[in-house]
Amino acid sequence: MKTVLEIENVHAKIGEKEILKGLNLKLEPGKVHAIMGPNGAGKSTLSKTIVGHYDVTLTGGDIRYKGKSINDMEPEERALEGIFLSFQHPVEIPGVNNAYFLRTALNAKRRHEGKEELNAAEFLRLMKSHLEMLGMKSDMISRSLNEGFSGGEKKRNEILQMLILEPEVIILDEIDSGLDIDALRAVSEGINKMKDGKRSFLVITHYSRILDYIEPDYIHVLKDGRIIKTAGPELVEQLEDKGYESIEEDSAS
């Protein structure tokens, strides 16, 4: 079995509080991994730990991306190397033009990969095609980044960034929360479009609905700072019916 991202016995604190307590997880290339778990279990903390968020202190264990430890990598380096996080609560940045921001991000990545940068016109063409696909209004080009966006608009904007940046490991933290039916479909289509047999997805969610669209390969249950169970998509039904209390811990975890 190949692994693109390996999280090994990770312990992590926020402030003085230990949130991740010896967490193990392996993401396989080309696969969709879903993470489910009760509120406060540490799902967002896990995603923050992977991208090097300043809130989180790694106190033990190792995170390896493509075989190399990324524990000491700056957040922007991890991003440039292909790790993307769609935030549960995207922050608003007044005055920063959405298109300008995205083009800067894309060109930073292209520079990193030794590719030529896109000029404004080329980029706009690219951005417009994705906007249409996601059912986003064209004023999203010129508006300030996330400023005054509705909850659903913010989530679509995260997906837009994913589509443009074409990352290799994609972490989606509750991308489906607060979406209406059309938005959920558009966002799922965006995700499915990114599936290419090589990219990996880590989809954090509370609902089976999005999973119906994006068809995960694995379901992991995260509880009290650890992955306590890994199974196939059939686990979702059991969870929906009986809740997290019903889950028996895998012996291997």
Binding site: P75, F87, V91, F101, L102
Partner: peptide, 10 residues
């Protein structure tokens, strides 16, 4: 952090 997570230097 949001911007850095998108690959933009600090």
């Amino acid at each position: 952090f949001y911007l850095r997570q998108r690959g933009i230097s600090e």
